[in-house]
Design a protein around this nucleic acid. Structure first.
Lengths: 235, 235
DNA sequence: TCTACTCTTTGGACTATACCAATATTTAGG
DNA sequence: CCTAAATATTGGTATAGTCCAAAGAGTAGA
């Protein structure tokens, strides 16, 4: 089982600091030669390291050393930007689309609305140190936020807009965490190869008055995140 | 991209009910022939389905259709058995080892104890419908539970023993969720191939009096679980 | 009927190679 | 010096086998 040795060798180089976070590994053909094996076996080893979250790849660009994951507490309202800054990371957000649409079956169900209701849909990609790590889609009950899209969604966080312009704040969050893999446009937006392991966080958010506000689906590159939280039991 | 067609064909068969939960897929060689391709490509497709959580494999035994994941709320004290029963699933637990050991560096740190302290270590494998899905290791502060190992750990849940014999209950839980992959003994115990995607849940549990009781590391087959919880924000 | 041994099938791992399209790099041109 | 076109490199996908050890099935013996 030769790929174990390859794995270990690469892990050692990472831990010894020969390879540092976000650094590109040599080309597959070069690595395969260095380890005296074929690309197939080499890629087997790399895929395993990818599953462990030690390396990641960018589609057709190569393999890179994974940086430390960001710690994420779904029970905090802290938005991505503030969460990142609190951890001395460099966040950036790219707005892909913000528009009013008719609710899909899936979105309508999540928002507890009849099919084809008017909702807002906001798609964003979020970066850490210029690496795209998160693809988020928000579905928002339109009737709660008239003219939401006239606010500058590309510069302000949604939670800030909710609070400042509509007096609405998150009070209760239902979340679900699953593992899956990145496909299609989402994979592309994250510069990932289809099939890259992912962590999926789905949240449904309720306001102070118990009203359902919005829901979001987050696709994280799985090595970029660790969920970290505390639960108090009321017993 | 032929493996996409293979994926879709298999997904379709699952969704049409031709293949049902826990059913074994045909042998790789048969499938490869059926799709007119090589085993390498076929395995590529299967690995992708594995990453998506639609199929799983048992080491050297073959590929199977993933059943519905179990929903797991880390903020509930419900132990595995009750959680499973509440969801009409059939749980079983196998005790691998329960012994008093000297704390490893890692365990000592988690338990906030000096190195080489006396602790209990309990290793268990948990099954759903006779499929091994979870490998748990508990590290327990020995001084809080004299003679714990004389109780029947193989028949009773740890939380029950804590409560009934020592009057200790969980009050606060710190948890961390990561994705990784199964390796070595853990993979073996779960009948998994090394490298199988996994969800890792680490918990540190505190009692009513705020005292650190124990911690546990849970390795889940990633397709067997979805984390499902609610957070109330105190704002 | 149950156990122990044998044979066959199957998954895991690996070699060697090939083609294509998207990158990255170099070169030529304004 | 900057831009655009030509070229080289590289990752993604696929073919066609091979070898091995574990698992499963079948068989013979107690």
């Amino acid at each position: 089982m030769q790929y174990l040795k390859i794995k270990d060798a690469i892990v050692e180089q990472i831990e010894d600091g020969m390879l540092t976070a976000r650094q590109k590994l040599p080309a597959e053909r070069k690595l395969a030669e260095a380890f005296d094996t074929t690309r197939v076996t080499l890629r087997e080893a790399l895929s395993m390291l990818e599953a462990e979250g030690r390396v990641y790849r960018e589609d057709r660009r190569g393999w890179f050393v994974s940086p430390e994951p960001m710690s994420y507490d779904p029970t905090q309202t802290l938005n991505f930007t503030n969460m990142a800054l609190a951890q001395q990371r460099q966040p950036r957000t790219e707005l892909l689309a913000a528009k009013q649409v008719l609710a899909s079956k899936h979105a309508a169900k999540k928002l507890e609305l009849p099919p084809f209701s008017d909702i807002y849909r906001v798609d964003r990609v979020r970066y850490l140190e210029e690496r795209p790590v998160l693809y988020v889609t928000n579905f928002i009950r339109a009737e709660l936020f008239p003219d939401l899209l006239k606010r500058d969604c590309s510069r302000n966080s949604l939670t800030d807009i909710y609070r400042e312009h509509y007096g609405v704040e998150y009070q209760r969050i239902r979340y679900r965490i699953t593992t899956s893999s990145l496909q299609g446009e989402i994979a592309q937006a994250l510069r990932a190869t289809a099939g890259t392991p992912a962590m999926v966080v789905e949240r449904i958010n309720y306001s102070q008055t118990g009203e359902l506000i919005d829901c979001d689906i987050e696709y994280w590159r799985h090595d970029a995140i660790t969920i970290d939280s505390i639960a108090e039991l009321s017993a």
